[in-house]
Design a protein around this nucleic acid. Structure first.
Lengths: 145, 145
DNA sequence: TATGCACCCTGTAGCAACTACAGGGTCAAG
DNA sequence: CTTGACCCTGTAGTTGCTACAGGGTGCATA
């Protein structure tokens, strides 16, 4: 009673995934290999659709492939306590928070560089100046060659 | 009057860069190839030290290798207007802001998942539920196999 | 002088997570 | 029966390094 099987292109469209990515997921055993048609085409069932949707969603949320693999494994063990799931999500959240902090620090630095730009020549450019090593400790390199 | 030339390991220490990374930068023509000693060791001058420090700082600020290449090229054209420098920094800032926004959205989602975790079994896990495709549109997969 | 040992050399392969071919085969429409 | 859209496998490219393997160099010490 397999209702409607999907070719790889259909699955790709249904999940906004590239065909190559689906084959890649199969190669790394993230998505199980589907049946094949007489012409050797992959033929996906609703189970695959569900599984790939799960993967995509988790990937969109920034979980690594390994984390997704763990989450998938856990999601199949429905009677186990969900502490492990919680732990993965929590670990990921910590990572995300760290990245946000780092990027915000970065933004402040870039903001400050840009606000100081006097639109003169490169020689006076505060951005280049800021990137240059210990600007006050040396003369301008190549200043008179 | 070359004051003090550095072996690759010294340069690595001075810039908190791995030796392999320095050789990699040379291979991709980001850092110019230095002189060699009689024994074929790389011998770096203060110019290299300055250039690598610039590269590291820019990389720490999240500029891509190509952006760093552009910034380096511009920093050598000291009499040109610094608009191009400004443009690179501005473009990068836009990217950084976008990443921050994305990550904050992500954090909100993860926060909400975690706050709903009832510490029951995987079957009731809100995190898994949230990742699962259109949860209301289907029964539990594998629910009775 | 021999012998460690730390350092250096080249070249290549690996990491994540895809993406993009090349060089074919399949299938339905016209 | 040909055209075109799709599919197949396999391999190489992407970014920015990092990690070997299998050697050579240079200096101190026994």
């Amino acid at each position: 009673m397999a209702r409607k099987n999907l070719a790889i292109g259909d699955l790709a469209k249904a999940t906004s995934t590239k065909v190559e990515t689906i084959r890649y997921y199969e190669r790394i055993s993230l998505l199980p290999a589907p049946e094949r048609t007489a012409g050797n085409y992959r033929s996906y069932s609703a189970v695959h659709l569900g599984r790939l949707s799960f993967i995509r969603r988790a990937r969109d949320l920034g979980f690594s492939i390994d984390q997704v693999r763990d989450l998938l494994g856990l999601s199949d063990q429905r009677d186990r306590p969900c502490e492990a799931v919680d732990a993965i999500a929590r670990e990921h959240l910590t990572e995300v928070k760290r990245k946000i902090r780092d990027l915000q620090a970065l933004r402040r630095e870039l903001d400050s560089f840009l606000s100081q730009c006097s639109r003169g020549t490169v020689a006076e450019c505060q951005i280049i100046e800021a990137l240059s090593p210990s600007a006050t400790l040396r003369g301008h390199p190549h200043s008179r060659d």
